[in-house]
Every structure is written in structure tokens, then in C-alpha cells.
């Protein structure tokens, strides 16, 4: 079936508008990151300027380096992701397989935690971490991120596990694999797409998180989102440096996105089209 010219044109038009809306800020930041602070403030904004790598130099290796913060972010996000997956995979598998009473209600609870406004939890979390002396620490940060990422990861993974017919595991049991190897050799390889998606989402959520990072972090653990925020100060805002830092922070996100595009799109649609083929 051939689409009419008008339909194609309007589709392209709409796609173009959205693409512009989404990419414009990124492109603007990219442009700004190569400007000197003076050029940034030029009014009207100019597209023609002498590009400089100074911002990147400062942001990466200068006095305002964000390298330690990138490392902090990476450590927190990695801890969070690894712990989340270690706990979420068995939990999701159990939820998918066992006929636990209250499974539905539990599923709803998991979703509900995703709907709470995080701001409401900051003070209790702050007091809690303070009490146990985990403020401004990697373990404290990871623990708090886990409370969000774990329910989300479980919820996402359950649908992947549910897609695998029980008979396939039973076949493995009869083929003398035993429960553990039936899981490792037959179930796990089939949900690797789902695991990849979940890893990416969990990692990016932790990487991009700002609110908890700024309140519960400090001098020891200052994540890159917080460090970027510090370019905005009372006296002045260093827009060009901020832009360079933003680009540096976004780079792994975009790379990861491009790399795992196929998985992500499938992950987003898996709930919508259940049973639409695993392969």
C-alpha cells in the first residue's frame, strides 16, 4: 500500500518539528561550549564566532575540572546498576513464575512507587542517612537510588520472564539441567535483551539524577550533575563552561543510546505488544 503524498509530507513535517524541538537545545549547548564567555553573552546571539576549546580544557583539566565528579557519578551509577540487577533478576523471575498470592497488588505497588514525587522523600531520606551516618557516601547514595531503580527494574524484567514458556524450562529439567542450569542456560540467554534495556535505563537514571545527588551528597560524593550546577553561582553564570560540562556528561548517554537503540525501542514496546515475538 502506498501512502499519499500529503500523508507523507505531514508525517515528515510533524517529525521535523519534534526533532527540532528536541535537538535544538543540544545543538545550542554544543555551539555554546565552543564559545568564549564573552561571545555567549553577545546580544543578539551570534552564530559566527572564533571557536575555542578552552571551555573543555577548563572543564576537564582546569581549576573547575569535573573529572572527579564524572568518576563519582560513574561509581554511583555502576554500583546502583550492578546491585539492582543482582536483586532484580531473581526477583522478577520469581514474580513471573510463582503463583504468589498478592502478585497483582505487589505489581501495582511497584508501579505506584514510580509515581511518587521524589521531592516528598528527600527529607525522610536525609534524616535516615544522617542517622546511620551514610550521608555524602557512596553506599548511602547507592542505597537511595536502589529504592527507585529496583522496583522499576523488577517491573520491566517481569514481562520478559513471563514471555518465556514454562515448558521450555521443564524441558531443561527433564534434560537433566537442574533448576540452576535451566535458569542460566535456557532462561537467562532469552532475556538478555530485557536485561540490556534495564541496565541502560537504571544506569542512565542514576547518571542523570540531580535532586538526591545535591541534597544527600557533599564533598566526598559530588556527582557531575551537581558539579555542573555549581557553574551557576550568585555572582555569575559560566554558561560556556556549563555547556561544555553538559556536553561531556551527555556524551556517554548519547553513545549508549545509539549503541543500544534497537534494544531500547523493543524494551519500550515490550509491555505494549506482549507475545509479539521474542526474537
Amino acid at each position: 500500500m502506498k501512502r499519499s503524498g500529503i500523508a507523507t509530507a505531514s508525517l515528515l513535517g510533524v517529525a521535523g518539528v519534534f526533532l527540532t524541538l528536541w535537538t535544538f537545545p543540544v545543538l545550542w549547548a554544543l555551539l555554546t561550549s565552543f564559545k568564549s564567555e564573552r561571545d555567549v553573552l553577545a546580544y543578539p546571539p551570534t552564530l559566527i564566532f572564533t571557536p575555542t576549546l578552552g571551555n573543555y580544557r577548563d572543564v576537564l583539566f582546569g581549576a573547575t575540572t569535573i573529572l572527579p565528579n564524572l568518576i563519582s557519578s560513574f561509581v554511583v551509577a555502576t554500583f546502583t546498576t550492578v546491585l539492582t540487577m543482582l536483586l532484580a533478576i531473581p526477583a522478577a523471575y520469581a514474580l513471573a513464575r510463582l503463583n504468589l498470592p498478592g502478585k497483582r497488588a505487589g505489581g501495582f505497588y511497584i508501579l505506584a512507587t514510580q509515581m511518587l514525587p521524589p521531592v516528598g522523600l528527600i527529607i525522610p531520606y536525609f534524616l535516615f542517612l544522617q542517622k546511620i551516618g551514610w550521608l555524602d557516601s557512596y553506599k548511602g547514595m547507592t542505597l537511595i537510588y536502589l529504592t527507585f531503580s529496583l522496583p522499576f527494574a523488577i517491573w520491566l524484567l517481569v514481562s520478559y520472564f513471563e514471555d518465556i514458556p514454562r515448558e521450555m524450562e521443564e524441558a531443561a529439567l527433564i534434560d537433566r539441567a537442574g533448576r540452576m542450569r535451566a535458569f542460566l542456560y535456557v532462561v537467562l540467554p532469552q532475556v538478555r535483551g530485557g536485561i540490556a534495556v534495564t541496565v541502560i535505563f537504571v544506569f542512565l537514571n542514576a547518571w542523570n539524577e540531580f535532586l538526591f545527588a545535591v541534597v544527600l551528597g557533599g564533598n566526598n560524593v559530588r556527582q557531575v550533575t551537581v558539579a555542573m550546577f555549581n557553574f551557576i553561582s550568585v555572582e555569575q553564570t559560566l554558561w560556556a563552561k556549563l555547556a561544555a560540562a553538559a556536553i561531556v556528561t551527555m556524551a556517554p548517554v548519547i553513545l549508549l543510546g545509539l549503541f543500544a537503540q534497537r534494544h531500547i525501542v523493543k524494551g519500550l514496546t515490550v509491555g505494549a505488544v506482549k507475545g509479539g515475538g521474542r526474537r
Binding site: 514458556p165 515448558e167 524441558a171 531443561a172 527433564i174 534434560d175 539441567a177 521474542r278
Partner: peptide, 28 residues
């Protein structure tokens, strides 16, 4: 346990392992 009974089974759905090729399925 099923694996200790020395039985083999063909399921109505076949229950082949989709991520393995035929050789690996039979070898499993």
C-alpha cells in the same frame, strides 16, 4: 527429580530452546 528419572519428553509445544541451533538443542 525429573532429571534423575531417566525419561525424555516431547512437549506439545516442542519447547525447543530458541537461542540454540538444532545441533545445540539435541546436544543439550
Amino acid at each position: 527429580e525429573p532429571g534423575d528419572r531417566d525419561v525424555a519428553m516431547v512437549f506439545q509445544s516442542y519447547a525447543l530452546y530458541p537461542h540454540m541451533n538444532v545441533r545445540q538443542n539435541i546436544a543439550f
